[in-house]
């Protein structure tokens, strides 16, 4: 894995301040795509002793087929709550979420999740961790076909030689690679990433961003990624969603990132608009 000399997280902040620029409004790649994930009037309330605490209120969002969006916001603003609600792991207090015109009830492999902690089953090998999901999604495939799917994705994330390693013997970064392979192998309609690189050091984070993009370029699965890393969100996403701070959090602003795909880190960093986008996002987060 080639690592860029300068990782995205190590940029000097003074280069990023430029508030006078016009927002791009369309991403041409997605013009004729249909909407696959639609969130409407979404509400999340946690009852507390002092009365209801409203985390999210009246949240609207729609994501197009093969669009990659990232959601940024301050910690505690409810972005993880939003993601777990899309995943079906958290109950919905109001409004609805639909995927491919079907209202979501409970969790399912059509919305694969890459969790913040790798969440592998530590007693299984990397292959078996991926296989567990593949067996659920492709119950009628032959054993050989299932094995091929698992091996293909593990190979893609750079674990081609570690099929039989126990998950708990791998480093965090390696475990998260398996987590990515497991999610893609489910062939989901929507891929949900919950700060997948938040626990990694910046070098590993850069590596894994490249791995993720490489796999994603092939499949172009609709992806929703939670992050609080501004550079990561620009590099990976077609659109960055900015959430206001809670309670009553909603979408404050959004920014289309019209860079072409496949993206190369160096080209993105050298792009004249990159620092405008970065400054715009920083500006939002600082107010």
């Amino acid at each position: 894995m080639a690592i860029e000399e300068k990782t995205l997280t190590n940029l000097s902040p003074e280069r990023s301040i430029n508030t006078r620029f016009t927002k791009p409004d369309v991403n041409r790649r997605l013009e004729d795509k249909k909407e696959i994930l639609v969130i409407d009037q979404l509400k999340k309330v946690y009852p507390t002793a002092k009365g209801d605490y409203v985390v999210l209120d009246n949240l609207k969002l729609s994501v197009k087929q093969s669009e990659f969006i990232s959601i940024i916001g301050h910690s505690g603003c409810g972005k993880s709550t939003l993601l777990t609600m899309i995943a079906g792991l958290n109950s919905i207090s109001g409004g609805q979420i639909s995927v491919d015109n079907e209202v979501v009830h409970g969790a399912g492999p059509d919305r694969a999740v890459v969790f913040q902690s790798p969440s592998l089953l530590p007693w299984l090998s990397t292959l078996d961790n991926v296989m567990l999901g593949v067996k659920q999604v492709f119950p009628h495939a032959t054993k050989k076909q299932k094995l091929e799917i698992c091996k293909y994705y593990l190979d893609k994330v750079g674990l081609g030689n570690d099929f039989n390693k126990k998950a708990n013997t791998l480093s965090q970064g390696m475990q998260q690679r398996v987590g990515i392979a497991r999610a893609f192998a489910l062939k989901p309609k929507v891929l949900l990433l919950d700060e997948p690189f938040g626990m990694l050091d910046s070098l590993t984070r850069g590596e894994l961003q490249d791995v993720l993009l490489e796999v994603w370029n092939k499949e172009q699965i609709t992806a929703v990624m939670i992050t609080h890393d501004v550079d990561e969100s620009i590099f990976l996403a077609d659109r960055v969603i900015m959430m206001t701070s809670g309670p009553y959090a909603k979408i404050g602003d959004e920014l289309v990132i019209p860079f072409d795909r496949p993206r190369k880190r160096k080209e993105i960093l050298d792009h004249p608009a990159y620092y405008d986008y970065r400054g715009y996002l920083m500006d939002f987060l600082n107010h």
């Binding site: 792991l89 399912g108 919305r111 969790f115 969440s119 089953l121 567990l132 659920q136």
Partner: peptide, 20 residues
């Protein structure tokens, strides 16, 4: 997190018990 995995994969009750 293991239980979340089993939910996302929609493991049946038997698989949930014996695999997770």
């Amino acid at each position: 997190s293991y239980l979340n995995v089993s939910k996302v994969l929609r493991l049946g009750i038997g698989k949930k018990i014996f695999k997770v």
